[in-house]
């Protein structure tokens, strides 16, 4: 039983750590949104794993809140950036958003080829 306990928390902790690294690295706002979303779902999964392994249902209502919070967070950031894009002529660079890192990397890749 203790093995299952440590194994489950090890796996979840590893996932959360990797999501945190992506949250720190970025490079763009949307990467961070995706990372935050993933992190919150992993936290929800951790709460459910705790509830299941310890047979302790007190944390289950928290689960409902966390799962809805992830949704509201990512949707509001997506709408925020979408609102900025509305006022922009090109991909958002003229209203202050930086050039997408993927586009830069893609251009470098094309040039190398």
């Amino acid at each position: 039983m203790t093995v299952a306990y440590w194994l489950a928390y090890g796996l979840l902790g590893g996932g959360a750590l990797l999501a945190l690294i992506r949250l720190g690295l970025g490079p763009s706002l949307l990467d961070r949104v995706v990372a935050t979303d993933t992190l919150l779902v992993i936290i929800a999964a951790g709460l459910a794993v705790h509830a299941g392994l310890a047979r302790d249902p007190t944390l289950v209502p928290v689960l409902v809140v966390v799962s809805l919070l992830a949704f509201v967070g990512s949707v509001s950031v997506a709408r925020y950036i979408g609102g900025m894009l509305l006022r922009s002529g090109d991909g958002g660079q003229d209203v202050g958003l930086p050039q997408a890192a993927e586009e830069r990397a893609g251009q470098v890749g094309e040039a190398d080829r």
């Binding site: 949704f71 997506a78 893609g106």
Partner: peptide, 22 residues
């Protein structure tokens, strides 16, 4: 909710050109 938020973020990501074209 997961598909809705995934769709909204991915749509904005595509329009912001967060795509490795290569």
């Amino acid at each position: 909710t997961a598909p809705v938020s995934a769709h909204m973020v991915s749509r904005v990501a595509y329009r912001r050109r967060h795509v490795r074209r290569d």
